[in-house]
């Protein structure tokens, strides 16, 4: 067991991790952040995607003990009170969610993409969410929403 100190959405958190505790389980069960979903628990579906030190990771494969001192961003940290982030708003406006199970992971993958590449092409968006499975939407609305969010972010930056 190990005491882990972690920044989650900008706030310092401390918890006790057992060897088998994954970052996903620590977030969901110890820190009460249930945005990241446990779809497959084997790294195949992306529903558990969060940002670790700015990089998208599948949190179901990361032992919580190894992230001491890290900086984690989850979908819960994106909205500013009732005001959604640009990516969240674009998902809402573009109807890019059906059952919603993939949505938190998709949004975090999109955030990571737009952080490093403000003007992605459709192919680059496809690539960025290629580790995120959606069983409902057929992907098109999701890809379009991410392109839309990129455009909004660029327009905002130019103001």
């Amino acid at each position: 067991m190990k005491i882990v100190n972690l920044k989650v959405n900008g706030v310092g958190k401390t918890f006790i991790a057992r060897p088998e505790t994954t970052l996903l389980l620590a977030l969901r069960e110890q820190l009460g952040l249930t945005g990241a979903k446990r779809g497959c628990a084997q790294g195949a579906c992306g529903s558990c995607t969060v940002l670790l030190d700015g990089d998208p990771v599948v949190s179901c494969l990361i032992p919580a003990m190894t992230v001491d001192g890290g900086d984690v961003a989850t979908v819960e940290g994106l909205a500013d009170g009732p005001v959604l982030s640009d990516v969240q708003q674009a998902f809402l406006d573009g109807f890019a969610t059906q059952c919603g199970f993939c949505t938190p992971g998709m949004i975090m993958s999109a955030e990571a993409l737009l952080d490093r590449n403000p003007s992605p092409t459709r192919d680059e968006v496809n690539e960025a969410i290629s580790g995120n499975v959606c069983r409902c939407t057929g992907y098109e609305p999701i890809v379009s929403a991410i392109l839309d969010a990129a455009e909004r972010r660029r327009a905002g930056a130019n103001l």
Binding site: C40, G43, C45, D123, V125, N126, E127, I129, G138, E140
Partner: peptide, 17 residues
Amino acid sequence: VDFCEYLMPGPAEIPVQ
């Protein structure tokens, strides 16, 4: 043998609908 290898189309394989 598991869902890592079970093939499904991703965003790059979707047709125009």
